[in-house]
Write a protein that binds this DNA or RNA. Structure first.
Length: 569
RNA sequence: GCGCCCGUGGCUCAAUGGACAGAGCAUCGGACUUCGGAUCCGACGGUUGGGGGUUCGAGUCCCUCCGGGCGCGCCA
C-alpha cells in the first residue's frame, strides 16, 4: 500500500515538474511514513517541506499544488489533506484497504535481478558453537529467508577455516589429551594457548579409540607431518565440524555451500591473487621477505601481511582469494555476517576487493554484537580462556529452537543484547514467542471448530467487507495489509527484527479483538454473513502470522502444548 | 592513545532526519471464569547520559565530554 501511495505522489510531483513548477534539479525522495497519530490518516509525507526548502518557496503552497496534481486511482483515497507546516496526509478508503485482503502473502519481487552471496557463521572448527555464533546464525538464516521471499537470488555459505595456526593448535591440543588418556602424559605439557574445553577430551577419547588415532598419539607430534594435514588436526576438524553441523540443524539453519579454505590453496587461487596484487603494486615484498598488502592512504591503516617471510600465507591472503572468488562467481552483492569484534577487518577486506578490480561497495558486512546470557537476573559467566562456556547446543536444548530464534530476532543485530534463559524457557505469554504462536494456534482452533460445524472459510469477495464493521476488524484489516510492505523493508534493510515486532503487534490486535468480543460478537455466530466474513478475516490473520513466523524460521503451531508439568508427576 | 558499536520510563528493547518518543516486563487498578483454554482494558512512569552545533524540524547527523562493550597480531 505504501508503494501505491508513493507512486501516486511521485507522479503528482512529476506532473508539476512537467508544468515547470519544479526545477529539473530538484529531486527530493518521496518517503511515505505511517503517522504516529491516527487523526493524520493512514499515511503521511513531508514532501511539501522538502520541496519548499529546495525551491525556496512556501511549503504550504507546494502542498496545495501537489494536492491539486494528484491523480489517484478511483476510490483509493477517502481523504487527502494538507497539515501545517508541510505534510500531506492520506486516508485510504476502507474498500481499498479491504481489496488488499485478496492476497495477503504475495510479496513484491523488489530484489529481482540481484544475486546475493550471504556468508555467515563461518566459525573455525576448533570447538562447539557458542551463543554469539547462534545470533549470527539465526540472523543470517532469517535474512536469507527474507531476501528470497522478496525476489533476491540468495545463496548461503559457510567458510571453513581449516588451515592455519588455530587448527594446528587444535590438533596439538587433541594430541596432548590423547596422550593423557593413554597414560603417556600428565597434562603438564599442555600448550599455553591450547584449547582447554572438556570437548577436546571427549574428541580425544573418540580419537584414541581408533587404531589410527592411538597410533598418532603414541608418536611424537613433530613426526606427524605438515601441520595442516596431520591426523590429529584432521580428526578434530571432522568431528567438530560434525558437532557444528548438528547444532545448526537443531536451529533449522541450512547452508547451500560449505567452502574450505584448503580448497583455495589447492586450486592455486591464493597464489594467483597474491601474484596479481604484487604485479599491480597493491602488494610488495619487504626486506624480510614478507609480502604486504598496501593500505597506504586508505582508512589510516597499516599495511597488512599476506605472506610471511617463511612463505606461509596468512588468513588474510586466503580471504582475499576467497572474496575475489565470490565476486567472480557472478554475485552482485556479497553480504558477510561477522561478530562485532571483527569490525576492524572491514577496511582491509574492502580495500582488497577494490585492488582485485571489484567494486568495494558490493561487500556489505552486518555486524552482530555480543549476547549476554542471564539466568534469574544474573549474568551467566562465560570464561573463554578456560573453555567453560555455554554452547549454542545447550541453549537450544534447554529453551527450544523457536524461542532462541524469535528472541534473537527481536533485537536489532548491531546492539548488544541480553538473553534471559528463564524468560526464553517460560511457556507463558510473557514470552513473546508464545504470545505470537498462541495467536496462530487460537485461529487454528476457531477454524477447527468451524470445520466441525461444517462451515467453510470463504475466499475473497468484496461483499465480505460489509459484515466487518467493528473498529477492531477495520484495524486488523489494515495490519494484515501492511505485511508485504514490512517484509519488503525488512529485507531491503537486512533487519528481521521488524518482522518480529510486526507480528507481535498484529497478534496483539487479534487477541484484543477476540477477547473484547468473545461474548457479544463471536467469530462463529448465528449470523451466516458475519460468520463467513469473520472466518475470512481471522484466516487471513493466521496466514500472515504463519508467513511471518516462517520468515523468522519459527514454527506456527496448530495448537499449543504445555511441556509436562513436573510438579504433578 | 586510535578506531568501531552502544547509552531511550525501575528492567529488556523499538522508533527509513519529520507531527505530542512507543511496546513488553515490573508495579497499581479493573474486565473475563474459559479447552474458542495461557487472553483483554486502564493507570503510573521520559529534559532520549551531559553540553554545544547543523536543520523549517534531531533519539537519529556533526563536535566535545562522561559512562559501558569490542577491536587495534606475520591468530582466524
Amino acid at each position: 500500500m505504501e508503494a501505491i501511495v508513493e507512486r501516486v505522489l511521485f507522479e503528482a510531483m512529476e506532473r508539476l515538474r512537467a508544468d515547470g513548477k519544479i526545477p529539473a534539479e530538484v529531486r527530493p525522495s518521496v518517503v511515505i511514513e505511517r503517522p504516529k497519530r491516527d487523526e493524520f490518516g493512514d499515511f503521511g509525507c513531508a514532501l511539501p517541506l522538502a520541496l519548499g526548502k529546495a525551491t525556496r518557496r512556501n511549503p504550504a503552497e507546494c502542498g496545495k499544488e501537489l494536492m491539486a496534481a494528484i491523480q489517484a486511482p478511483e476510490g483509493l483515497f477517502q481523504a487527502v489533506t494538507f497539515a501545517p507546516p508541510g505534510y500531506l496526509n492520506f486516508k485510504v478508503a476502507p474498500a481499498a484497504w479491504f481489496e488488499r485482503m485478496r492476497d495477503v502473502t504475495t510479496l513484491p519481487a523488489s530484489g529481482a535481478g540481484e544475486r546475493v552471496l550471504l556468508e555467515f557463521v563461518s566459525a573455525n572448527p576448533t570447538g562447539p558453537l557458542h551463543v554469539g555464533h547462534g545470533r549470527g546464525a539465526v540472523l543470517g538464516d532469517s535474512v536469507a529467508r527474507l531476501m528470497r521471499a522478496t525476489g533476491y537470488a540468495v545463496e548461503t555459505e559457510y567458510y571453513v577455516n581449516d588451515v592455519g595456526n588455530q587448527m594446528a593448535m587444535m590438533g596439538l591440543s587433541l594430541h596432548c589429551r590423547g596422550r593423557e588418556i593413554l597414560g603417556s602424559s600428565d597434562g603438564s605439557d599442555f600448550p599455553e594457548n591450547g584449547y582447554r574445553g572438556q570437548y577436546v577430551r571427549d574428541v580425544a577419547a573418540e580419537f584414541v579409540a581408533t587404531e589410527a588415532g592411538r597410533a598418532a598419539c603414541l608418536k611424537a607430534y613433530e613426526d606427524l607431518g605438515a601441520r595442516d594435514d596431520n591426523p590429529c588436526t584432521h580428526f578434530a576438524e571432522e568431528r567438530l565440524l560434525a558437532v557444528i553441523r548438528g547444532t545448526l540443524r537443531s536451529g533449522d539453519i541450512e547452508f547451500d555451500h560449505w567452502t574450505n579454505e584448503r580448497s583455495l590453496y589447492a586450486s592455486g587461487a591464493v597464489e594467483r591473487t597474491t601474484d596479481i596484487l604484487l604485479q599491480r603494486d597493491n602488494a610488495y615484498r619487504d626486506e624480510a621477505g614478507s609480502i604486504l598488502f598496501r593500505m597506504e592512504g586508505k582508512a589510516d591503516e597499516d599495511d597488512r601481511v599476506m605472506v610471511r617471510a617463511s612463505g606461509v600465507p596468512t588468513y588474510f591472503a586466503a580471504d582475499i582469494a576467497y572474496h575475489d572468488d565470490k565476486a567472480r562467481r557472478g554475485f552482485t552483492r556479497l553480504i558477510n555476517i561477522w561478530g562485532a569484534d571483527h569490525h576492524g577487518y572491514i577496511p582491509r577486506m574492502k580495500a582488497s576487493l577494490e585492488a582485485m578490480g571489484h567494486n568495494p561497495a558490493m561487500l556489505q558486512v552486518l555486524l552482530v554484537q555480543m549476547v549476554t546470557l542471564t539466568r534469574g537476573g544474573v549474568a551467566v559467566p562465560m570464561g573463554k580462556r578456560s573453555g567453560e562456556f555455554v554452547t549454542l547446543q545447550e541453549v537450544l536444548d534447554e529453551v527450544g529452537r523457536d524461542a532462541v530464534r524469535f528472541l534473537f530476532l527481536l533485537r536489532k543485530a548491531d546492539a548488544q543484547m541480553e538473553f534471559d534463559l528463564d524468560l526464553a524457557k517460560s511457556q507463558t505469554m510473557d514470552n513473546p514467542v508464545y504470545y505470537v504462536q498462541y495467536g496462530h494456534a487460537r485461529v487454528a482452533s476457531i477454524l477447527r471448530k468451524a470445520a466441525g460445524l461444517g462451515i467453510a472459510v470463504p475466499g475473497f469477495s468484496e461483499a465480505l467487507r460489509e459484515s466487518l464493521t467493528l473498529p477492531e476488524e477495520q484495524s486488523l484489516i489494515k495490519d494484515v495489509a501492511r505485511f508485504a510492505g514490512v517484509v519488503e523493508s525488512a529485507a531491503r534493510r537486512c533487519e528481521p527484527h521488524h518482522i518480529a515486532f510486526y507480528l507481535t503487534d498484529l497478534v496483539k490486535g487479534f487477541h484484543g479483538y477476540y477477547t473484547r468480543n468473545k461474548h457479544t460478537e463471536k467469530v462463529i455466530s448465528s449470523d451466516p454473513a458475519k460468520t463467513a466474513a469473520r472466518l475470512f478475516l481471522v484466516s487471513r490473520v493466521q496466514s500472515v502470522l504463519a508467513a511471518g513466523l516462517r520468515l523468522l524460521g519459527v514454527s506456527a503451531p496448530e495448537e499449543m502444548r504445555l511441556a509436562a508439568d513436573d510438579d504433578t508427576a
